[in-house]
Design a protein around this nucleic acid. Structure first.
Length: 229
DNA sequence: AATCCGCACAACCGCTGGTAG
DNA sequence: TCTACCAGCGGTTGTGCGGAT
């Protein structure tokens, strides 16, 4: 059921006292009759500081569209690029506002090939959901540098192909690997169309840089950014 | 005024992957 | 290596609200 103000207060005090994490202990510590999942979700989606509420800006919508094109329904990953927004927010917004934009009436299909370019077929699913520290040492696998093979061609549905050519990178260049991964990812999808505006501007190279920079910052921050990467 | 319907958002549920023992 | 437990994710459902009838 819905959370009460008293429950929110107890949860907030608990998190402030003990910090995030150990969610299985939170219900006991906070004296809440809630499961750890419910507590975690309430904190992440509602109580956490700096949560941005209200309508999504045009910039945010555009970014969601682009990232969804690249990543598919990886809401936590998309939300990670939108400061103050939660995965649940992004998911809800997509389901209620944006998904319908992609559903094109039959008689319009011919004239809106642009919109139809966003399909399950060309969604790239770049990585496992989380990386352990040992796994992080091999994060570069996702851009093909420490993988035995240089192409990720796991098919889920139809197509998931990431091709890279540089096999000579050193293992310690993992941070650059992350940047390179985003650069490749974005560069390979440079024809993203802008559905929000109903027109079809392409994704310019200048637009890639901020995204790569975001990822760069996250990577250098350590776990916060890498937890999703 | 009552009812219906659709929308937006919150919350729940089942599953997956990581980790410790 | 196996297993149990935990954290996190995404899909789905529930709920409240406002507008239409």
């Amino acid at each position: 059921g819905a959370w009460t103000e008293e429950e929110d207060l107890l949860l907030r005090e608990c998190i402030e006292k003990y910090g995030e994490g150990k969610w299985h202990l939170v219900p006991v510590r906070a004296g809440l009759n809630r499961c750890r999942k419910s507590c975690r979700l309430r904190w992440l989606n509602y109580l956490r500081p700096h949560i941005k509420r209200g309508d999504f800006s045009l910039d945010e919508v555009e970014l969601i569209l682009r990232l969804h094109k690249l990543l598919g329904n990886r809401w936590s990953l998309i939300a990670g690029r939108l400061p103050g927004r939660t995965a649940n927010d992004v998911k809800n917004y997509w389901n209620t506002h944006l998904r319908k934009k992609l559903i094109v009436p039959h008689d319009q299909k011919q004239e809106s090939k642009t919109a139809m370019k966003i399909t399950e077929n060309n969604i790239i699913k770049p990585r496992p959901r989380t990386f352990s520290r040992p796994a992080m040492n091999h994060v570069s696998c996702w851009n093909g540098k420490s993988c035995n093979k240089n192409t990720i061609d796991k098919n889920e549905g139809d197509t998931e192909i990431i091709k890279f050519t540089d096999e000579k990178q050193k293992p310690e260049e993992s941070i650059d690997d992350g940047l390179q991964w985003w650069a490749n990812l974005l560069a390979n999808n440079i024809e993203i169309k802008d559905l929000a505006n109903g027109n079809s501007p392409t994704l310019l190279h200048e637009e890639i840089a901020p995204l790569v920079n975001i990822e760069s910052n996250l990577m250098q921050e350590g776990e916060s950014g890498l937890s999703d990467f």
